[in-house]
């Protein structure tokens, strides 16, 4: 048995490592490059389309001209509506899970179900929203049906981020408060939640980012193809940014001519997400502890 030559071995190890690391580095940079090419392409193309009028005007001429005002308002309604539903319930559910219920079968079931809900594809939420809210409960295609559907989709996200925020609160705070004779709810509401609050809000912002871009759940529950007026009640249909982008880029009356509007809409969507992410990151940095999205 001949032992490998020390120098040869060392240099071969070094070479292999260098090659491997270079490949990994290139692949990683490729991913970042993909991200930036998407962002910069849409920014470049969309920038010229965006103007004050684009944001504040109704669509015109078969959606090839004019603005996207009703779609922006529609998305705003949907985001508010879904969060009005998902945020309080999600936060309360997370408090229940993290502060109240003891480890055991109930907690396990709730956890499992929340996980399952999070794993359901968004189009299935659309099917469900259509059969329950639109047809069974008779809401029709409406803001309320769309908001409830989107809210259900966002619920697991809110629960998870809130749970992580609560977990990050050191137990000594709870013990100190309970030791002073405060009740469980007093401890939770006066001590735990205020400490966890910034992270809970971070979670809220991230869910807003997610909800504003979802298309599949609103296809059959609220979204209108073309509706150049603002809704007057929660039982009205609305246009929405992601659906608008889908429509004008695939099935509009004149796809080629409406491209600038499409680029503009895509840019607005990206800006919303970018803004949500930046804000969330800034909050995290500002308040220290980290909340995870996935």
């Amino acid at each position: 048995m001949q032992l490998p030559d020390e120098h040869k071995l060392a240099s071969s190890k070094k070479r292999k490592q260098a090659i491997a690391f270079w490949i990994f580095r290139i692949f990683s940079y490729a991913i970042i490059a993909i991200l930036f090419s998407i962002l910069s392409f849409i920014t470049y193309k969309g920038f010229s389309a965006i103007s004050w009028g684009f944001i504040t005007q109704m669509p015109e001429e078969g959606m090839t001209k004019g603005g996207i005002f009703p779609a922006i308002i529609g998305t705003l309604y949907l985001v508010c509506g879904s969060m009005l539903f998902a945020f309080p319930i999600g936060v309360l559910a997370a408090i229940y899970m993290n502060e109240y219920v003891k480890d055991g079968i109930i907690k396990k079931i709730i956890k499992q179900m929340t996980n399952n809900l999070a794993g359901i594809p968004s189009i299935v939420f659309g099917l469900f929203g259509m059969s329950l809210f639109v047809n069974k409960l008779g809401f029709g295609d409406s803001i309320i049906a769309g908001s409830l559907t989107l809210g259900l989709l966002a619920l697991p996200v809110v629960i998870r981020t809130t749970e992580e925020a609560l977990k990050a609160v050191d137990d000594t705070f709870r013990q100190a408060s309970l030791g002073l004779g405060a009740s469980k709810w007093q401890t939770t509401s006066k001590v735990v939640i205020p400490i966890a609050f910034p992270n809970i809000i971070t979670g809220l912002i991230l869910s807003i980012g997610r909800v504003s871009g979802e298309t599949a759940p609103i296809l059959f529950t609220v979204a209108a193809y073309f509706l150049p007026k603002l809704p007057t009640s929660i039982f009205d249909q609305v246009m929405a940014l992601p659906y608008h982008l889908y429509v004008i880029s695939t099935s509009g009356t004149n796809i080629e001519e409406s491209r600038p509007v499409a680029y503009g809409t895509a840019l607005v969507l990206i800006l919303i997400v970018l803004f949500a992410n930046l804000l969330a990151n800034a909050l995290r940095k500002y308040f220290g502890k980290k909340v995870k999205m996935n």
Binding site: M1, P4, L9
Partner: peptide, 9 residues
């Protein structure tokens, strides 16, 4: 990891 491949060894 130090380059020895001889099974018996």
């Amino acid at each position: 990891v130090n380059g020895i491949t001889d099974k018996k060894f």
